[in-house]
Write a protein that binds this DNA or RNA. Structure first.
Length: 353
DNA sequence: GTTATTTGACCCGC
DNA sequence: GCGGGTCAAATAAC
């Protein structure tokens, strides 16, 4: 346990120092006629560092603290639509214990692994735990004027590939499942679900999950999607109405896809969907709006990661930017440097599990 | 030939 | 057992 504390503290200190150093550099650059991109990328790095640091802190928060913080934050008048806790407090406590234990296991398993290759079964287990339970998820309600010839859900600037459609029991319209086109080539695990709204057939409810690590964001437009089937609401015609509302889960959920972030990386998907603590205290919009967790990608107007809605690299650690197969990929990342793993060739063989 | 979509089957959590 | 999410073979589109 002492060693755990040691590397956690080490990582934490490293992140804070890095954040400070980059902030200093930003300050120096501020008066220079350097590009906005440069400043934005520095800003991105700073926030990324603090994201990491905060996540490490959160990771190590005592259960009692977590619970207290959750209760406090859930009472916050600013917190919106965090998942209501249905569980009895005792159950919550047990769940947190369980989750904390799992989280710790995953992190320590990674950091402390002396083996050159982590067992595939471990990776598999870790992946599903993270992806299904911890990857951020948020919903957007998007309205589109179908009369204008748009036949399908909005194109959000990313390139998606449909991999399934399902009739939902209580829903009038089927739900379509999309994943990032670059999942195979770049290991991007972002997915989205699109479902036509029952109340308003011209509207779509789009649920995003996971972060783009593919660097093929809105600006690249590297897509082979049929233009008629998707509407790019970044460049929507005036007649196109776009509404966003009910960002139900994680407005800060990492959608970081800057090149820089991929190198630097990110705890991206370790924002915990089911973790009451992270939802309410680390991720609730009130926290974001008011303090540390607001992503630069949301703040900047011309930056490389100027997302159309509050995407964030919050909690990003390291992009395990793996070129891969269809296999599940870790979509969370952490700074190897910060924990003293300097070898950039750290063997993370996600290719063949 | 390559890439995307469709759709039935399968997996897994509840 | 049910239902949501994903897989993967078949098919379509380019």
């Amino acid at each position: 346990m002492e060693s755990e504390k040691s590397w956690e503290q080490h990582a934490l200190v490293n992140e804070l120092i890095e954040g400070m150093e980059v902030a200093r550099k930003l300050k120096e650059d501020w008066s220079l006629p350097s590009s906005a991109d440069s400043r934005n990328s520095l800003l991105q790095r700073i926030l990324s560092s603090y994201d990491k640091a905060l996540l490490i802190l959160k990771w190590n928060a005592p259960i009692s603290n977590s619970q207290t913080m959750h209760q406090e934050s859930s009472q916050s008048p600013l917190s919106i639509q965090t998942s209501p806790l249905r569980e009895h407090p005792k159950e919550v406590h047990h769940q947190q214990l369980k989750q904390n234990s799992k989280k710790r296991f995953v992190l320590l398993g990674y950091f402390n692994s002396t083996s050159q290759h982590i067992q595939k079964s471990t990776l598999y287990t870790c992946f599903f735990f993270f992806f299904r339970k911890m990857v951020p998820k948020w919903t957007r309600h998007v309205r589109v004027n179908i009369d204008n010839g748009f036949e399908g859900p909005l194109h959000d600037g990313y390139s998606w590939r449909k991999y399934g459609q399902k009739d939902i029991l209580s829903a009038k319209y089927p739900r379509s499942y999309y994943r990032c086109t670059f999942r195979k080539t770049m290991g991007c695990c972002a997915t989205k679900q699109v479902q036509r709204s029952e109340e308003d057939p011209n509207a779509f409810d789009i649920t995003y999950r996971g972060s783009h690590t593919c660097c093929k964001g809105p600006k690249s437009q590297d897509t082979k999607e049929k233009p008629h089937s998707n509407v790019d609401f970044h460049h929507a015609k005036p007649s196109l109405t776009v509404e966003t509302e009910n960002v139900t889960a994680h407005p800060l959920a990492s959608f970081g896809c800057t090149t820089q972030d991929n190198q630097h990386s990110l705890f991206s998907s370790m924002v915990l969907e089911n973790d009451p603590f992270s939802q309410t205290s680390l991720l609730s919009p009130n926290t974001a709006e008011s303090s540390y967790f607001l992503s630069p990608s949301f703040l900047v107007s011309d930056g490389v990661c100027n997302k159309p809605w509050p995407y964030s690299d919050a909690a990003g650690i390291v992009s395990a930017d793996t070129s891969t197969t269809n296999s599940p990929i870790f979509d969370f990342n952490f700074s190897l440097h910060s924990v003293g793993i300097e070898d950039s060739k750290f063997p993370f063989d996600a290719l063949d599990f």
